[in-house]
Design a protein around this nucleic acid. Structure first.
Length: 1030
RNA sequence: GGGCGUUUGGCUCAGUUGGUUAGAGCACCUCGUUUACACCGAGGGGGUCGGGGGUUCGAGUCCCUCAACGCCCA
């Protein structure tokens, strides 16, 4: 059999994937003869391509699903993608602006949505391609998209149900308004940026001040233009105690502060006292004016607004008085609700001022601000202007400043839903691993904040509500009775409600359960129009575990695979997604969506920052696969994914000319082209814009962290290659394990343990541990010892057959265990193994299945585990190590065969006797004497393995380098002396001897005795050598 | 401000219920073309386990405290 020396993944992976596909290996069907195991993929956004974070997420899911499939479950991994409403619309809109200088309004809803579908098609293809190349064994026949018909039906049914139960309602709310995209964005889509700004002091005249009262009141603001929407000015209702409270808080802080901080806090206290002295009388007076109902005249718009008392006004901040703009500031909104203030919206959706702003109508916010300040100055109502750092919220999607904005929204009432999702976790129906993430989940849900689900977007599930407002109650009721006459009303497809509006008018809202154009037309003919908004993306992803299985239809898949088994995801969406899936699953089906959730770490770059395209540090799994192969990508990720640590992955550019890896730095990660320090040629990056840069070949972004994994793939490949090259004449035969030699039984014992540990590790989501166990076993035991020992056996006709059988069994088991982590290389080797040894196994060899992917998961054979065999083999390994250390310290060339004598007990002798020839294979030693009477050589290099009661001697007659030997022995002696000192100290401590468990003390004593013997022996060796010298 | 996490050799990380001399991979040094693998083999150097305090016969591991970094929430 000829096998290439390297695993050519580029050639092999595609063929293997095709073969799996053709055989339907990853397809799952409801199957009463098997237990189901199902996972839904966290659907990737079609906004962009996948990076290594997704690579990790999907690798772990695939490891689990492949393991379960091999374990005999009917294993379904449900794939799909997410429409990611705002994110996707935002990128398409931004491109539209950049490339054609058009807004979405230039295009219109239908045309824009079509463009987004085109974008989706392109990226979905790319994403699925990435997943497939990673080897993800999803059931591709069942692909879903959160905006497809099946998911849409689930969304409609859910919305209808919640609307009917009065759990969806309409209300006003101050939202984060993105003036560029002209939509509300959620808190999670907002980031704060500190910018330089000003703190403008402004005076509002008092209307009809009484004698002795101030004629104007000073307020300060960072956003002067919002004064146009002011409806009050607030002062604290009890400024004196407010000062005291802040003072005592600072006092406490001072008492607890370290000496370094004390000075600063003391300064704050002094300033506060000074301020209190100066300002308190005025603030008290203002408070009294507020209680007396004094009004102010709002400049520029000449509106009378009340002076009110509210705790939001902080005496210790600014002027102690605060303007209140309920429609444009979250805190002011709360004040407005408390004091029942008018709420005046001064903005148009595009961020320009509306008619409420009077003469300022039509200006943009910056222009308006400038003009307001100028006009106030003309009126001599402008005070100081301070420079100040301002935390300004920005939209994550459009990168433009967010405006707080009062808008009508649909809400999902969370009280009961959230409680149900909390209960599911507290009573362990849903288990979260690692457990510490429970807390965040429960804390977030316990706030039970209603969920605003309207998005003023075009890309998404349009809200299935038809409405008409501004009508009388009678008109609304007339429409209601017409609706009730529809046959669809009786069949439960229509729900409606009538709400009273602010202006004393009424509105009727109608929700339709199914997509039904005829019914929609009928409803519209009653004068109702459909809500233009779409639903928050998370509304549809919350349904993902059941919508993908066909709900609200009662499909066999839903029946069989729901609830799903495990969800694997990253921690940033525990609240946004995981919690909502739980509550929606409970609402829609009365059952949890999954019983276990595993939260995996994040992938960071070398600077500890999350990877993203916008930073330029994002790694495309495809680049890693191209360079290292899919198995190396997967193994590399799995190996790093431990329980507690995020994964730091230093990133390199790969020079496309010479393949040099160039560390990515803060500097070079954002430039359009990089010059390779090795070959001096340039290559382009993702930032290339100019024609010159674009014409350069592109440098892939990879990480050398995958080299280890790639090497491991190669190691495994070559171990198999060697094995299979020695399979000529293989015949299956029944093996009696009890009669096998030590090394075989050692291998089987180790396999038993490894199988048990790997199985357990995967089932507990300890993917890094599973990878490590397999790596260590495959490399350090299977290759370094078993195969090395097998070499002489394979060339011995008497032993060859048994050796082939055991090694075939070992390789077979190893391939099965490694397959979930490294599917391609294992499948490839499996094919060769099937050619060389189609029937294999120990007692009863049987024909192996065609694919390792669908082979049975190994069962840990408890009877093969044998502690004393492992201990004995360890003795052999120790002797091997000793010979190697001596050889190395003497610089004996590997091809030289050295005579070795091993003094040991009788029992060790009978153990090592059969291993004699393997010393030759592993260490180039000719064991000339073995047993109780094996003596040192004339010119001898000794090494005592005192704990085993073995002395190893190497004959140095031909090789002696006395100085090297002396320095080795002296170094050894120093080490031993150090250890002896430590132990003697420990044992002379009465407390230790008296209080430590007897076994520990005994162990220390024995080990001290051993060390002393070793010291003696080393000392006499040194003496002997020195005598030889003289 | 609250919560969670991290800090172990140059780098990336392991380290089970406290118990021999704290491990691995990469990098480094020495030697090596032994008929699987130089993406390899053999050997080696390198760590006051972030600082301080405590509990204990014994602390990388438990407790307190400080510091730095990261994430989430307000």
């Amino acid at each position: 059999m000829t096998i290439p020396t390297r695993f050519d993944h580029t050639e092999a992976a595609a063929k293997i994937a095709d073969a799996w596909d053709a055989a339907g290996c990853a397809h799952a069907e409801p199957n009463p003869n098997k237990k189901p195991f199902s996972i839904v993929i966290p659907p990737p956004n079609v906004t962009g391509a996948l990076h290594l974070g997704h690579g990790l997420n999907n690798t772990l899911q695939d490891i689990l699903i492949r393991t379960k499939r091999m374990q005999g479950f009917e294993a379904l991994w449900m794939p799909g993608t997410d429409h990611a409403g705002i994110a996707t619309q935002a990128v398409v809109e931004r491109r539209l602006k950049e490339q054609e200088n058009k807004s979405r309004h230039d295009l219109g809803r239908e045309a824009l949505v079509k463009r987004i579908w085109d974008w989706k098609a392109q990226y979905e293809t790319r994403i699925l391609g990435q997943l497939k190349r990673m080897g993800c064994s999803c059931d591709w026949q069942r692909l879903r998209f959160t905006l497809d018909d099946v998911c849409a039906a689930a969304v409609r049914a859910t919305f209808f149900d919640l609307f009917s139960k009065q759990r969806i309602y309409r209300g006003k709310r101050l939202v984060n308004w993105d003036t560029f995209l002209q939509t509300a964005v959620s808190d999670d889509e907002v980031f704060n940026e500190t910018k330089k700004g000003h703190f403008w002091h402004i005076f509002y005249p008092v209307v009809d001040p009484k004698p002795g009262e101030p004629t104007r009141i000073e307020i300060a603001t960072t956003r002067p233009e919002t004064m146009l929407g002011d409806t009050a000015v607030a002062v604290h209702p009890d400024p004196e105690s407010a000062f005291k409270k802040v003072g005592s808080e600072l006092g406490e802080k001072l008492a607890a502060a370290s000496s370094g901080e004390q000075e600063e806090i003391q300064e704050q206290i002094d300033a506060l006292e000074q301020r209190s002295k100066e300002m308190l009388p005025l603030l008290v007076q203002l408070r009294d004016m507020a209680l007396d109902g004094r009004k102010l005249l709002l400049p520029l718009v000449d509106r009378e607004i009340p002076l009110i008392a509210d705790e939001w006004a902080k005496p210790e901040m600014g002027t102690g008085c605060v303007k209140i703009t309920p429609a444009h500031d979250p805190n002011d909104y709360e004040v407005g609700k408390r004091a029942d203030l008018q709420m005046i919206n001064i903005l148009n959706p595009d961020g320009t001022l509306n008619s409420e702003a009077g003469t300022y109508e039509g200006l943009t916010i910056p222009k308006c601000r400038k003009k307001v300040v100028e006009d106030l100055e003309k009126l001599e109502l402008l005070g100081d202007i301070e420079d100040r750092e301002i935390e300004l919220p920005h939209s994550d999607r459009s990168k433009t400043p967010i405006e707080p904005y009062l808008a009508d929204q649909w809400f999902v009432a969370m009280a009961e839903l959230a409680q149900s999702a909390m209960d599911a976790v507290t009573d362990d129906r849903v288990k979260i691993f690692p457990e510490r993430y429970r807390k965040g989940y429960l804390d977030w849900l316990s706030e039970k904040r209603d969920w605003p689900v309207s998005r003023q977007l075009w890309w998404g599930h349009q809200i299935p509500i038809w409405a008409v407002g501004g009508i009388t109650e009678a008109e609304a009721q007339a429409i209601e009775s017409k609706l009730k006459a529809f046959p669809e009303y009786a069949s439960g497809k229509i729900a409606e409600r009538i709400d009273a509006e602010d202006a004393g008018t009424f509105a009727i809202f109608v929700c339709l359960r199914d997509e039904d154009v005829k019914l929609e037309t009928k409803v519209q003919s009653l004068g109702l129009t459909r809500d233009a908004d779409v639903l928050d993306t998370w509304f549809s992803s919350a349904l993902w575990p059941h919508s993908t299985l066909g709900w609200p239809e009662k499909t066999p898949e839903l029946e069989y695979f729901y609830p799903t088994s495990t969800l694997i995801t990253s921690r940033d969406i525990i609240t946004l997604w995981v919690a909502r899936m739980v509550l929606m699953g409970l609402n829609n089906l009365g059952e949890i969506p999954f019983s276990e959730v595993f939260i995996h770490p994040k992938i960071l770059d070398g600077n500890g920052e999350g990877m993203s395209k916008s930073k330029g540090n994002g790694v495309d799994p495809i680049d890693v696969i191209d360079k290292f192969g899919p198995d190396a990508l997967r193994f590399g990720l799995a190996r790093l994914a431990t329980e507690t640590q995020d994964v730091r992955m230093p990133v390199q550019y790969e020079c496309p000319h010479c393949e040099k890896l160039i560390d990515q730095t803060k500097k070079n990660q954002s430039v359009p082209a990089v010059e390779c320090p090795q070959c001096k040629k340039s290559f382009s990056t993702q930032w290339a814009e100019s024609e010159a840069d674009k014409s350069l070949p592109k440098g892939a972004v990879v990480s050398e962290k995958f080299e280890t994994a790639r090497n491991f793939v190669n190691k495994l490949w070559n171990a198999a290659r060697f094995t299979l090259m020695n399979f000529d004449g293989y015949k299956p035969q029944s093996i009696n394990v009890a009669e096998l030699p030590l090394e075989d039984r050692w291998l089987l014992s180790r396999l038993s343990t490894v199988t048990r540990d790997v199985t357990e590790a995967i089932e507990h989501y300890h993917f890094a541990e599973a990878s490590r166990i397999l790596y260590d076993f495959a490399w350090n035991e299977f290759c370094s010892f078993y195969i090395e020992i097998a070499k002489p056996r394979l060339s011995d006709n008497a032993l060859r057959g048994v050796t082939q059988s055991v090694i075939a069994h070992g390789l077979d088991t190893l391939l099965r265990l490694l397959h979930p982590i490294m599917p391609f290389v294992t499948e490839s080797i499996w094919g060769f193994l099937n050619d060389a040894a189609p029937e294999r196994g120990l007692a009863n060899p049987v024909k192996a299945p065609r694919f390792v992917m669908t082979a049975d998961w190994p069962v840990a054979e408890a009877s093969h585990y044998n502690e004393s065999i492992e201990r004995q083999f360890n003795e052999f390994q120790e002797v091997v190590g000793a010979i190697r250390r001596i050889r190395s310290s003497q610089n004996i060339a590997p091809k030289e065969v050295v005579p070795v004598a091993i003094r040991c007990s009788q029992s060790s002798q009978s153990l090592l006797e059969p291993m004699r020839s393997y010393f030759q294979a592993l260490t180039g030693a000719d064991v000339v004497a073995l047993g109780e009477h094996a003596a040192p050589f004339e010119i001898d290099a000794p090494l005592a393995l005192t704990s085993l009661d073995i002395d190893v001697h190497v004959d140095l007659e031909k090789f002696i380098d006395v100085n090297a030997e002396l320095s080795r022995l002296e170094k050894l002696r120093d080490q031993v002396v150090k250890q002896i000192t430590g132990k003697e100290q420990k044992l002379s401590n009465e407390n230790f001897v008296a209080r430590a468990p007897e076994a520990v003390v005994l162990k220390e004593r024995e080990s001290l005795d051993d060390l002393k013997k070793q010291l003696q022996s080393v000392q006499s060796d040194i003496e002997r050598l020195k005598q030889k010298l003289t």
